[in-house]
Amino acid sequence: MTLTKADLVQQIYKTHPTLTKSQSTESVETFLMLSKSSLINGQDLLLSGFGKFNIKDKKSRRGRNPQTGSELILDARRVVTFKPSGILRSRINANR
């Protein structure tokens, strides 16, 4: 089973009787938009109890095309990493 955006909307709708279906959809979209904006602006995103999304700047480096073995330069880039919180890690390992 894979959880999708539609499942999040459904869960919001179910637990928030004051929200219409379209407001529930809007709330999930807005939540995601705000989270993304933070990261796009180079700001880490800390969701306590869940984990932390970090922005990391990688230097350019020399790499190889694994298929041909030829050398190439990989440009400097900015990436997103995720570090799960201790609470999330122990929850995932609890029911084993």
Binding site: I12, R91, I92, A94
Partner: peptide, 21 residues
């Protein structure tokens, strides 16, 4: 609710797929 729903899914061993994110 959003964070708990995602945590619950992962705690059950399920994966999460959010388009664009």
């Amino acid at each position: 609710t959003i964070i708990d729903t995602m945590s619950d899914a992962l705690a059950r061993g399920e994966s999460i797929e959010i388009r664009g994110f």
